[in-house]
Design a protein around this nucleic acid. Structure first.
Length: 561
RNA sequence: GCGCCCGUAGCUCAGCCGGACAGAGCGCUGGCCUCCGGAGCCAGAGGUCGCGCGUUCGAGUCGCGCCGGGCGCACCA
């Protein structure tokens, strides 16, 4: 399909060149035009708006230009049957009727690779996502960031990019959060020995802190009871961080997410990278001192206020460390960087970009995707979330309730810009209201046809692939299903290049609908051996398309349900 | 107050770089099981694309201004 689009685009460009050399059209730079699948079948299989775009630029009639292009258009007759100019100036391409049959064969031949391509040409992309504090378990919000990042990574790698998944651990020992976390842990530890320690107002009150404290007590007994508090807190912080991180990693793995690397903020401090970043910023001349703190003039680069780089007590801010982290990203030479950030970070984008610009980095290769909040509903009621207060449903619990597939699918259904109300009750429902089952069921059904065929020793199975006559597939539901299957490559490349994984869910649903409809109106295993063989091949292509789409979403494709 | 996001069918949302009669799911109404899995299929009802102005041959899509909602505006991360 990309091949088809490419072929059409190239033929158009050639025709334009020829028209120009004949002096019929003048242009120096072509406007951006598209070759797309038109919204309606009567408009052909592909269409382009190039004549209208040119018409606008040259102030000439679009139809006239279309006719000129058509005159010079030299098309592969094996592909295109005829070309028409529509009333408004669209050029519509009608492909030879067997192009869809070729697509079906291609699907079956390429199997797992069907839908994949090499647009990325091996260029490296780094995707940074989740990047949580190690001060608590992951929750639903992290889940959304996780699926978004992971599926964007899967998509990019499917279209030929070399993808690197990274988790940035916000574990700086000097950070307020980490210290507060250590203190909360200390309190729980002391309390477990009956000491009257008081949990600070803004401490971490979650049950899991008590759990960790008792784990520490189990492992080390009263070893830490009689040492200075400061020392105890820092030991506890370190211990707890390791435990939390291990749990986070385990949940992500269960959720189908495997990082290529984990970069620790503290490691950036220890290696002197944070200090170095600050020095470079100071040397850049964009900093100043005020109230004993060091400020960065981010307003000179589009931020709405200047930001503190080093606090008056001498400790660097999160921004300083994040600049160091991003310098480290740039150092590793990735061709592009994608950051998946939660809604609470969106004010932060301008700040970080400003700082990187001050150092002369090319910010255009860094893409920040900020997703909107996700609220959890159970039995029609909003479930409150607050880490400090400890009222929280963890990602782990959610996976226990709804399963990996449903959680991933639901979090992928909406575009990142749209907030999600996650309805656990719906996600766990095994009915037609639940889109996950609908799609998976289509896949299981396709598989079951093959199972049935082999039980029956159906003669269609013995027809060699190159003898299968796909032109027998003339029913409207067969034609529609072929068209849907043929869309896969376009859908994948578009979803990948735009970083929009939600396109996959609606496509998956469409595919499933087309398959169910085909299934209902066309019996695959029948008396006509050749017809059965053709339908079996179409079933296989559909099965492959559905399975590959689900695979890109990280959702399983069960062969039976 | 400033910044970002959103406002499309009863509900939840798609709508690609402006394009050909505005789409889907759920819900609702009415049909479909001799036969490969009814967790399915078919048909139908349902929309001033928040409002106004502008750019354009053409605007749900772009620009400006309102109105409504969400989030962010720390020497927290």
């Amino acid at each position: 399909m990309v091949a088809i689009r490419d072929a059409l685009t190239k033929a158009l460009l050639k025709a334009l060149e020829k028209a120009r050399s004949h002096g019929e059209i003048e242009f120096c730079e072509l406007p951006r035009f598209i070759v797309e699948r038109p919204p309606h079948q009567t408009f052909g299989d592909y269409a382009t708006n190039i004549a209208m775009m040119l018409g606008k630029e040259l102030k000439r009639d679009a139809k006239e230009i279309a006719d000129i292009i058509l005159k010079h258009l030299d098309l592969d007759s094996g592909l295109v049957e005829r070309v028409e100019v529509a009333g408004t100036g669209f050029i519509n391409f009608y492909l030879r009727s067997d192009w869809l049959c070729d697509m079906v064969r291609q699907a079956v031949a390429e199997d797992e690779r069907f839908g994949h391509s090499n647009i990325g040409d091996g260029q490296t992309v780094q995707v940074e996502f989740v990047s949580a504090n190690p001060t608590g378990p992951l929750h639903l919000g992290h889940g959304r960031g996780g699926v978004l990042g992971d599926v964007i990574a899967r998509l990019l790698s499917a279209v030929g990019f070399k993808v690197h998944r990274e988790f940035y651990i916000n574990d700086a020992a000097t950070s307020t959060q980490m210290r507060k976390f250590g203190q909360s842990l200390e309190v729980r530890y002391l309390q477990s020995f009956g000491h009257p320690a008081q949990m600070p107002e803004d401490g971490y009150k979650g049950e899991y802190v008590v759990d960790i404290a008792s784990e520490i007590r189990k492992e080390f007994g009263d070893k830490y009871l009689h040492i200075p508090s400061g020392e105890r807190v820092s030991i506890f912080t370190q211990l707890a961080m390791e435990k939390m991180l291990a749990r986070q990693r385990a949940v992500l793995e269960r959720f189908g997410i495997n990082m290529d690397s984990w970069v620790s903020e503290q490691w950036l401090y220890d290696g002197g990278r944070v200090r170095e970043a600050i020095e470079r910023l100071i040397n850049s001349g964009w900093t100043y001192e005020q109230d004993e703190a060091i400020w960065l003039r981010t307003t000179s680069f589009g931020d709405d206020k200047d930001r503190v780089l080093v606090r008056s007590d001498g400790t660097p801010t999160y921004l300083a460390a994040d600049v160091a982290y991003h310098i480290y990203k740039y150092e590793r030479g990735f061709k592009s960087l994608i950051n998946i950030w939660g809604p609470d970070h969106h004010g932060y984008v301008a700040r970080l970009k400003a700082a990187l610009k001050a150092l002369g980095y090319d910010v255009s290769k860094m893409h920040v995707i900020v997703y909107q909040i996700v609220r959890l509903f159970k039995d029609g009621e909003l479930v409150p979330m607050g880490k400090r207060e400890g009222e929280m449903i963890t990602l782990e619990e959610l996976l226990d309730w709804a399963g990996v597939d449903a959680v991933r699918f639901f979090l992928l259904m909406r575009s990142a810009d749209s907030p999600i109300d996650f309805d656990v009750t719906l996600a766990t429902k095994q009915s037609q209201e639940n889109p996950v089952y609908y799609v998976q069921y289509a896949h299981a059904r396709a598989c079951s046809i093959f199972k049935q065929a082999s039980i029956d020793r159906h003669p269609a199975l013995t027809v060699p692939k190159d003898k299968v006559n796909l032109s027998l597939l003339t029913h409207s539901s067969e034609q529609l299903l072929m068209r849907e299957v043929a869309e896969l490559l376009d859908i994948v490349s578009e979803a990948a290049l735009r970083y929009e994984p939600h396109r996959l869910t609606s496509y998956a649903h469409q595919l499933a609908t087309a398959f169910h409809s085909f299934y209902t109106s066309c019996r695959v295993l029948g008396d006509d051996e050749m017809l059965s063989a053709a339908r079996l091949m179409l079933t296989d292509a559909a099965r492959i398309a559905i399975r590959n789409t689900l695979a890109l979403m990280g959702v399983s494709a069960p062969t039976q349900m």
